[in-house]
């Protein structure tokens, strides 16, 4: 039987030391068993590698940064939709989720589907609100405090001991061992991502992540826990292994049941030496290591697309434990004309 072909637009085609999830999401979509795909890349910068990976991305269009406003984004998507007849968009950056969530119903009217958290879910899980989130849902989180002003840094010593984590509102986190370092990271991170800055209690232990998919009704469609085995100086997993920790899966199911989370997500967890589990962060999107989930038997991007287009998706019941992902970097040789095409015309 001929499978339905879906035109799916994907962002996050970058691959710096903190790689975007786009290329991994597309690999998963190309392996989908329930549909065929045409892949439209959506890029912010001309040097995002996914743009030039022609066996991964069929065509790419540049889109405006979230800061340009929702109207600019909508107008660009209307143009792309006219040419490509998009069925689904999968946004993969935290910073772009706000405009995409705002546009969800307008895009649906145009026939473009997404499967995103609600604005309430998106805001509630924000790291700025993590303390309240932990209390409300009975999930252990490290103590954290939101600061807007460099002058309040000195008062932190009464609430936190060193080291402490200094976090940006979207990305970046550094471990500070002195007030001077807190100030340095405050300036560095706020210059890049704006205010506020989040100060978080440092939990010693091993780092774990869980990726998965919630159906928006409290059900767990997919969940795969992973232990980070090789961690870059940005704290990103460059290698990891699937594990079978029932407590992590319980915490994940509790998170999905209580919040009725809709869409893909990544939980960042820390287990201390006493085996206590802390939720450090909830990323409201699929992670860059999502292909491991496919490798262990849960094609989460495929399931997400099926939910987006209104198909019934049964929950995954199993996955292979002990499978590893090991990431690598690959130098592509690219003709200058291609770079010119995307840089000048915004299309390739």
């Amino acid at each position: 039987m001929k499978r339905r072909k879906l035109n799916i637009a994907v962002t996050g085609l970058n691959a710096i030391d903190s790689p975007g999830p786009g290329v991994s999401v597309i690999r998963a979509l190309r392996e989908a068993e329930s549909f065929d795909v045409g892949i439209i890349g959506l890029s912010y910068e001309s040097l995002e590698p996914g743009i030039y990976m022609h066996d991964i991305v069929d065509r790419t269009y540049s889109i405006p940064y979230p800061g340009a406003g929702i109207d600019m984004l909508l107008s660009r998507i209307e143009y792309i939709h006219e040419k490509e007849k998009l069925d689904v968009i999968i946004p993969n950056f935290d910073a772009e989720l706000y405009p995409f969530i705002k546009l969800e119903s307008k895009l649906k009217d145009m026939g473009i589907h997404m499967f995103l958290p609600t604005m309430h879910q998106f805001e509630e899980r924000h790291k700025v609100n993590l303390n309240d989130f932990g209390k409300k849902y009975g999930i252990s989180v490290p103590h954290s405090k939101v600061i807007y002003d460099l002058n309040t840094v000195h008062s932190l010593q009464s609430e936190f001991s060193f080291p402490m984590i200094v976090k940006g509102k979207f990305y970046d986190a550094s471990i500070a061992y002195s007030i001077e370092q807190v100030k340095t990271y405050f300036n560095k991170i706020s210059a890049k991502w704006g205010l506020p800055i989040i100060i978080q209690e440092f939990i010693h232990g091993a780092e774990f992540n869980v990726t998965g998919l919630g159906d928006g009704k409290g059900n767990t469609i997919a969940a795969v826990p992973m232990r980070k085995q090789y961690i870059t100086d940005k704290g990103k997993a460059w290698g990891g292994i699937s594990i079978s920790d029932e407590r992590m899966l319980d915490m994940t199911r509790k998170f999905l049941r209580n919040t009725k989370w809709r869409g893909g997500f990544e939980l960042e967890l820390m287990k201390n030496k006493d085996g206590e589990l802390y939720l450090l962060e909830i990323n409201p999107r699929l992670p860059a290591w999502i292909y491991l989930a496919v490798g262990v038997g849960q094609n989460i991007p495929e399931a997400l697309v099926n939910l987006a287009i209104g198909e019934k998706v049964p929950p995954f019941s199993d996955y292979a434990v002990g499978k590893m992902f090991i990431r690598y970097a690959w130098d592509m040789i690219v003709d200058r004309e291609e770079f010119e095409q995307i840089s000048i015309y915004g299309e390739l």
Partner: peptide, 9 residues
């Protein structure tokens, strides 16, 4: 020796 709960080997 692999511990599938912790991921340690």
């Amino acid at each position: 020796l692999f511990n599938p709960v912790t991921g340690e080997s």
